[in-house]
Amino acid sequence: MRKEQVIITPLRITKGLQNKHFQVKLPKTAKKIIGIELGGFWMGARGDGGVIFIGSPGGAAVYPADSFKLEAAMFAASRDLKGVQFFRRNILIGELKLQSCEEANIFYAGHLQMDNNLSQGDFTQTPFWTPQPFTHEIKSFEEHIIVDADSTVISGLYRDRIGEITKANIDYLVNLYVWIEVENNEPKTEAK
C-alpha cells in the first residue's frame, strides 16, 4: 500500500542575501516525490530586524521598511483614482531550488513571497479594512511534481531576497515541505 507523507525542513535565515545550502533526507521507503510546499514565520521581535509594523483591525501586519514607502506611495496614488487600486508588487522573500542527487539539473525552482494583491477587485474593502491572508486566502495546495525518490537525499539552495530589497538583516524561518509517496508494507494493525 502506498501513502503520502510530508518531510518538513526548517531553514533559519538571519542575514540579508544569505545563501543556505541544505539537504533533505528521504526515507528508504520513499518511492517518489510528489509535491513541494513553502511557508514560514518572521522570527524578529516586534519592531526589530529592519521591519516596521502597521496596525490593522485584524492584527498588526508587518512590512519591510522600503516596501512600506512604496506601498504608501501606491496607496496615495490609488486614492486619487477614487478607490481604483493598482496591482501592488508582491514582496519577494526568497528563492528556492531543489535537485535530486540521482538526476541532472534542478527539479524545482520556486519563490516565497507575500501576497500584496489579495484585496484586488474585492469590493468588501474599505479605507479602514482590507482583506487579509487569514480571512481571504484560498486553500493551500502543494505544487505537484513527480520525481522518483531513488536518491536518499535531495539538495537544496535557498537564497534570501528580501534582504536585498530592504537592505536589512531580517530574521525569519522558512519551512520547506516535501511531500513523498511511501511504500507501506506493514500489515494494518487493528486499533485497540
Partner: peptide, 21 residues
C-alpha cells in the same frame, strides 16, 4: 487512530481556508 497525517511543525495556515473558498 495513532497514524500521523500531519507531522509536528506543519503550519496551521496550510490547513485553513479563507472566506473566498
Amino acid at each position: 487512530n495513532k497514524e500521523e497525517y500531519f507531522p509536528e511543525n506543519y503550519e496551521s495556515k496550510l490547513l485553513m481556508s479563507g472566506i473566498n473558498v
